[in-house]
Design a protein around this nucleic acid. Structure first.
Length: 257
DNA sequence: AGCGTATTTCCTGTTT
DNA sequence: CAAACAGGAAATACGC
């Protein structure tokens, strides 16, 4: 089986993003992030939006970009697996991602991680940018040599995803996989979900925050604080919550590939 | 050091 | 009765 990562000298330095934006430009678009309309899934390019907030369309565009620019073999990518949002994409850990994404998984994971973290060159210096992509290139080659036993990708930082409780909840809802029915969508279209296993949810949140004294009682108090900020809306049913107008990243985007 | 935000902790009362 | 919900109040954690 041919690993597409072997496929070329990836990243011909600065030419890489020529048709797109430089990182500096991308970062300067932070402001436009604030006004991005998640409801309508409107038009910001994936380059202008943080991966965690990508719509399905953005994920699709990003994948296409990776295939084009990194010469990944699209035949080796399970395209149907990428019918997911950025939040879903980002919530997978490395193992899950690689399982999910096929033989190019490690390459794609690395690219995504670098987009997510400040490993992105935040500078105006094209030389640094190009150095960044060279490093990315090197890692890409590594993954071609051995897709299994590469552990030391120190470049990939552990990331800052889901640092807030509501994001943690959201990502749990969106993550395909293994947390067995702790949360379930009640009405996905409008963002209503139900806490199925309250103690388990508290335990997971406690683990994440390294707080073994977390309880659902306390977690739910934190959730109720979200009512006043519009992250959540009240639903007068036990263990049922609804994402509010200030929550993002949970929607099921209608525009698909 | 000071501040603001996001919880965490505790509590009293109410509802399911 | 147990489990949740409602919020107020205060303590804490943490990033800037």
């Amino acid at each position: 089986m041919l690993d597409s990562c072997t496929n070329n000298a990836l990243l011909p330095d600065t030419a890489l993003y020529e048709p797109l934006m430089t990182w500096t430009e991308i970062i300067s678009h932070e402001d436009s992030l604030q006004v991005f309309d998640h409801e309508s899934g409107s038009d910001a390019a994936w380059t202008a939006v943080r991966p965690e907030y990508w719509t399905r369309r953005h994920v699709c565009d990003w994948l296409q970009f990776c295939c084009d620019q990194y010469k990944l073999d699209s035949n080796c990518i399970p395209i149907s697996h990428f019918d997911l949002t950025g939040a879903q994409l980002c919530s997978m850990n490395k193992e899950e991602f690689i399982d999910w994404a096929g033989v190019s998984g490690e390459c794609l994971y690395l690219i995504l991680q670098n987009l997510q973290t400040d490993a992105m060159p935040v500078c105006d210096n094209p030389e640094e940018e190009s150095a960044f992509f060279k490093e990315c290139d090197t890692k890409g080659m590594l993954c071609a040599e051995d897709t299994k036993n590469q552990k030391g990708h120190n470049r990939v930082k552990s990331g800052q995803q889901a640092s807030h409780l509501w994001e943690f909840v959201r990502d749990l809802l969106l993550t395909p996989g293994d947390h067995q029915r702790i949360l379930e969508w009640e009405d996905r279209d409008v963002g209503i979900f139900r806490v199925v296993k309250s103690e388990a949810l508290a335990r997971m949140w406690g683990q994440k925050k390294k707080n073994n004294k977390m309880t659902y009682e306390k977690l739910s108090r934190a959730l109720r604080h979200y009512y006043k900020t519009g992250i959540l809306e009240r639903v007068d049913r036990r263990l049922v919550y609804k994402f509010g107008k200030n929550a993002y990243g949970w929607q099921d985007c209608k525009t698909v590939m």
